[in-house]
């Protein structure tokens, strides 16, 4: 399991971050889901709650764990974006972890809130996908590729 940088851990624990999961279904069709409950556990694994077994995401996740396929997690706040490729490690339907996420859901959404499952993921690799970081990396690898020549930093303007 890849360890995550502190900045990513903070982002994952920040309720203001946008947390996304990208999966594919058995036919290969991609699917994107937002899951605010996604967080990082004490042992470095990622986990989030899923409300329904019948959701498109749940079905994709079952497919992924059965076929050992990876999913991608995106976490973003402002101009900062990180991407984590991960493997489904465990589908939790009972026990302390399920109870913990259920109680959180009920604290946020009231006593009738419910979840069916907590999915646990293990990161394979992580990368900073923020536009500024990507631009710098691209510029260092391919200094003259792809930039428009009329950018303000390149063109000499007449006085």
């Amino acid at each position: 399991m890849a360890s995550l940088p502190d900045e990513v851990l903070e982002l994952l624990r920040d309720p203001a971050s946008v947390k996304l999961l990208a999966t594919v279904d058995p036919d290969g069709t991609p699917h994107l889901a937002i899951r605010p409950s996604l967080t990082v556990l004490e042992n470095g694994e990622l986990a989030f709650a899923e409300e329904l077994d019948s959701s498109e995401l749940s079905q994709d996740l079952v497919h992924a764990i059965w076929r050992d396929r990876r999913v991608t997690v995106g976490v973003s706040l402002g101009a900062t974006v990180w991407q984590i490729r991960a493997r489904l490690w465990r589908c939790v339907i009972t026990g302390p972890l399920l109870k913990r996420f259920l109680l959180l859901a009920r604290a946020e959404r009231g006593p009738d809130a419910d979840i069916s499952t907590v999915w646990v993921l293990r990161a394979d690799d992580v990368r900073d996908d923020s536009p500024a970081v990507r631009r710098l990396e691209d510029a260092s690898r391919r200094p003259n590729a792809g930039s428009h020549l009329d950018r303000a930093s390149l063109v000499r303007r007449e006085a």
Binding site: V62, I65, W66, R90, C91, I93, T94
Partner: peptide
């Protein structure tokens, strides 16, 4: 017993 995919 519980397997990792939630199968009991």
């Amino acid at each position: 017993l519980l397997l990792r995919d939630g199968t009991s």
